[in-house]
Amino acid sequence: MAHNVKILPGATVCEDCTLEGDITIGGGTVIHPRVSIIAEGGPIIIAEYCIIEEYSKIIHKKSEKQENPPKPLFIGAHNVFEVGCKLESIFGHIGESNVFECKSFVGTSVRIGSGCVIGAACNLTAPQTLADNTVIWGAENNIREALEKQPSQVLQLDFLGKVMPNYHRLRKQNFHKRQPSRQSQDGK
């Protein structure tokens, strides 16, 4: 089932989650149980210090006009995926310090910059590009622009990194960083 999943040192990945395809998980990232990360259309690279909470789904969808070799989906550092969110973006890059709140949905044709917040239960389906620091909130998908990036969840990450091993079976780190992590993907 799980083929070619690279877990870098310092990452906390629970065993009870679905990881399919070519996935790389950066150091310091915490993945809660029951998470699905499915790389069917190409590899998924998750950078450092992300939090991916329960029941969130990150899917790299197959698309018709797929490049060969497929472009990876790169998820920047310090992103927070809250409980039950779903991300289907096929664009190669998601910025850093974004927050995907509970039950939010980001469809295939949405580009996301950095420091964005997709509010709880907000659905983004239409093709669009979110500029940096965009906040989407409320039942009517109101948009506003934040002045600064969302604060990073360093304390929460530290806590999770300590607590998770006490209550969950974890996947073993299987990839040792010799060079900086970004370059280690060049082999594909």
């Binding site: 917040v117 509010g119 906040v135 909130w137 409320g138 109101n142 506003r144 934040a146 002045l147 600064e148 969302q150």
Partner: peptide
């Protein structure tokens, strides 16, 4: 917490 407005804004 709803719309992430802060007093710093």
């Amino acid at each position: 917490f709803n719309c992430r407005w802060t007093s710093r804004d």
